[in-house]
């Protein structure tokens, strides 16, 4: 079941990601954006398979919701029905850049698999097999709380199983986010606060760029 879901989501993500960038499949940016929505939804499924439930929901809300709406809004505001780009570039340069990118992927693959070895598996609820594993703080507290002999073993096991069930839940992620990672979180809120008026000012209609001729009619009509 898990494998079927993985193949479904991974295949969907990769195929729709290919559809995003191939001009043959997605001739206009609108097509690309719609294919990108499918990619994000498939990725949310993969996140859920990885027990990251909060991130899966956030992926759907923020990426597939907010960011894609922004993309589609800008595409339609700019009226980019057909791509307004110049003549297609030469075949040699296209092949060259593609080869460069594929070489980069192969290099990354080799590096990661060389460092990992291909046999690395997930710790699937290690409380059952090996209580010493798992650097998660929750599991660690289980270990220290019950330095137990035999009857307490069961309690420790239950505690660790609870830890693994709550893994990726809003409670565990939120606790980490608001205790240990509070400073990055607050910096992020400042970044968003700056980005909001920044985007407003940049997108203003009569933005005075140095070198803009006076009274140039703006070309993006907002119909």
């Amino acid at each position: 079941m898990e494998k079927v879901l993985f193949i479904l989501f991974a295949g969907g993500a990769i195929l729709s990601a290919v559809a995003v960038i191939l001009p043959v499949i997605a001739p206009t940016p609108v097509h690309s954006a719609l294919a990108l929505v499918v990619t994000f939804l498939c990725l949310a499924g993969l996140y859920a398979l990885l027990a990251a439930h909060v991130l899966a929901v956030l992926q759907v809300l923020v990426y597939a919701g907010a960011i894609m709406v922004l993309f589609l809004f800008v595409i339609m505001l700019l009226n980019l029905g057909q791509e307004r780009t110049g003549p297609p570039r030469r075949a040699t340069s296209r092949v060259l850049t593609s080869a460069l990118a594929i070489a980069l992927i192969l290099l990354l693959t080799g590096q990661i698999f060389g460092a990992l070895g291909s046999s690395v598996g997930f710790k699937s609820n290690p409380a059952v097999t090996n209580p010493g594993t798992g650097p998660d703080q929750c599991v660690a507290t289980c270990l220290t709380r019950e330095m137990g002999d035999h009857p307490r073993d069961k309690a420790r096991k239950a505690c660790q199983e609870e830890c693994w069930e709550s893994f990726g839940s809003l409670r565990s992620v939120g606790r980490l986010l608001f205790s240990e990672y509070l400073v990055p979180f607050e910096l992020l809120s400042i970044l968003l606060l700056i980005a909001l008026p920044g985007a407003l000012i940049l997108a203003k209609k009569n933005l005075e760029l140095p070198g803009t001729p006076e009274g140039q009619p703006s070309e993006g009509n907002e119909s």
Binding site: L55, L70, K123, D136, G168, V173, L176, A195
Partner: peptide, 24 residues
Amino acid sequence: RSYGNSVGHVSAFLVIAIAAAEAA
């Protein structure tokens, strides 16, 4: 998921928020 550590979730959260700001 592999290390059983929730810090990766926090990082992914930060990346999503930064991606939103970057897109805007």
